[in-house]
């Protein structure tokens, strides 16, 4: 699963922060997920649990908080804004899967609902961010 690769990235980054901040334990990691990534949170949490082994003293008690940011798209031609989840319902399984792997492929499969231009920007809701790593 592709969620595994992202979970590895989160753990690796949190450990790097802990090293830089000289933390002996990480108590909380706050993650922001863009809706466009269409992450399966169950699969992501499963991967995190598998990657964070109980013997990992730094991370074993870490609380992981997920916040999903809704994806908002804005047409560069007519200025119309729309929500990705409205458009997502019209995507085929294959198109949706492509956006899941490489969110920028949304530019291939989506168009402005108002003027049909493919030239739009992803204003919000893409990428994966670690908002904070807390510990002591």
């Amino acid at each position: 699963m592709h969620e595994w690769a992202l979970a590895e990235a989160v753990v690796s980054t949190a450990l790097k922060v802990a090293k830089e901040e000289k933390l002996s334990e990480i108590t909380k990691i706050e993650i922001k997920m863009g809706e466009l990534q269409q992450i399966d949170l169950e699969a992501f949490e499963f991967a995190l649990k598998e990657i964070i082994k109980p013997e990992n003293l730094l991370l074993r008690n870490a609380e992981i908080e997920f916040n999903t940011e809704k994806a908002v798209l804005k047409c560069r031609v007519c200025g119309y804004r729309w929500a990705f989840d409205d458009a997502a319902q019209k995507l085929s399984e294959q198109e949706s899967e492509s956006i899941h792997f490489i969110p920028e492929t949304a530019h291939v499969y989506l168009k402005c609902p108002k003027c049909e231009s493919p030239d739009f920007e992803i204003e919000k809701g893409r990428g994966v961010w670690i908002e904070s790593v807390e510990g002591g």
């Binding site: 592709h2 492929t105 291939v108």
Partner: peptide, 26 residues
């Protein structure tokens, strides 16, 4: 992931697609 369709990506999209591809490819 794009098939034969045009992929009209601007600079930031290209950076993001590249980051995604490099982060998940084993």
């Amino acid at each position: 992931y794009t098939g034969d369709g045009p992929s009209p990506l601007r600079g930031l999209d290209i950076s993001n697609a590249m980051i995604e591809l490099l982060a998940i490819t084993r």
